Simulated scan of single mutants.
Amino acid sequence: MNRRSVLRSAAALLGLGTAGGAAATAARAGHNRYYQGPVSDHFDGLRFFNPEGSPPKGFKDLWRWRTGPAPTKWPESIPVTPARPATRVQDLTITMVGHATMLIQIQGKNILTDPVWSDRASPVSFAGPQRVTAPGIAFENLPPIDLVLLSHSHYDHMDLTTLKRLKAVHNPLVLTPLGNDAIIAGTGLRTEVLDWGQSTAFSKMWVHCEPCHHWGARGIADRSMSLWGSFVLTTGVGTVLFIGDTGFDQGRPYRDLAQRFGPIRAAILPIGAYDPRWFMADQHQNPDEAVTGFQMSGAAYGVGHHWGTIQLTNEGRDDPRTALHAALDQRGIDRQVFRALEAGDVWDIPKL
């Protein structure tokens, strides 16, 4: 792929690409077509933002990045032995599908995070970042899916093709931050939206939407017009934290979680897509920051994701795992406590 095509793919993935039609017209008119609601401490009436945080970079910075040092070359493919999960798990098991897609089996329910089974994280099927690992669970071997946690609208987290497949076969409920329901409306999925600080009951558990430092977009005309967030699951078998994407943001995504939600049994945290730091640091934490956040959260166990599946940034395929191990070693934390799972890995999370 030539440099112009790479730039176009990166721009689309990061919400810097060309949007057309209604979205562009709406943006010029100062209208948010996804969400209309009152001004708040993180919504200005048109766009969402990170309070006292950093806005996403613009096209000039994207150009500087993509015309700078070449990314470390990834292998074209990595062998995967797909898992065959149990139909139901009464305790807590986490299976890595790939990137930010995890199967959380907890208290008899099956939950997917940011489900992507497509070959590319892109607005088009013929170009854009391509996965080097097959999904860690074949789609046809999924157990009945009850719930989807959808953290934000970037293409490597919100895949409309996969969501339509889930609707056809499983018809799960989708919980997602404000505005994302409008983007996925065409899938036909049942959707419930949450603002930061809001909670909803699901079966015998509660799902809480919490702040993190990121942004969302499907194109240049809708930057930050849908909200991003993390999720805390409080259940009878323990509490689980899932963050799809975040900058470390002085640790604010992690502060006071244990005090508010009790002991966290497992924290599922992003560890990849962090290089170069001058471009990525505000929106993507690195492994060292992830370990600091893990410690701040008071979680007993950590699961590292958002690495090793699709190349979005400059670091090598295995660099996040190597850096995670170094950060754990430096702090005297057992590597088995915070694991960077490969596609197909299954972890029965120990009880507290």
Rank of each mutant, 00 (worst) to 15 (best):
S122Q: 03
I271Y: 00
T93S: 11
R260I: 07
A340E: 02
E210P: 00
R3L: 05
G30N: 11
R321V: 11
L328R: 05
K164L: 08
M205Q: 06
D146A: 03
T187Y: 07
G188H: 06
I310F: 04
G188S: 10
V174Y: 07
V39H: 06
L103W: 05
A70E: 12
D348T: 14
F261E: 10
A83E: 01
Q259L: 12
K167M: 13
Y34N: 14
W74Y: 06
A86R: 05
L241V: 14
N32Y: 03
S40H: 00
L233E: 02
G68L: 08
S151P: 10
D91A: 10
S77Y: 10
P82K: 07
A300L: 04
A326P: 02
S153R: 03
Q198A: 09
P135H: 03
D249K: 01
I220M: 06
G344S: 06
P172W: 00
D288K: 01
S40I: 01
A134G: 01
W206F: 10
Y34E: 04
D318E: 04
D319Y: 08
S224A: 15
K164I: 08
T239E: 02
G238V: 11
L227S: 09
A100Q: 06
M1T: 12
Q90E: 15
H306K: 05
R4C: 09
D44G: 12
T25D: 09
I94E: 07
P172V: 03
L166S: 09
A138D: 15
P69I: 12
R252N: 05
A185K: 14
H99G: 10
D318I: 04
E289W: 04
R33M: 15
W196A: 00
Q130I: 15
L233P: 00
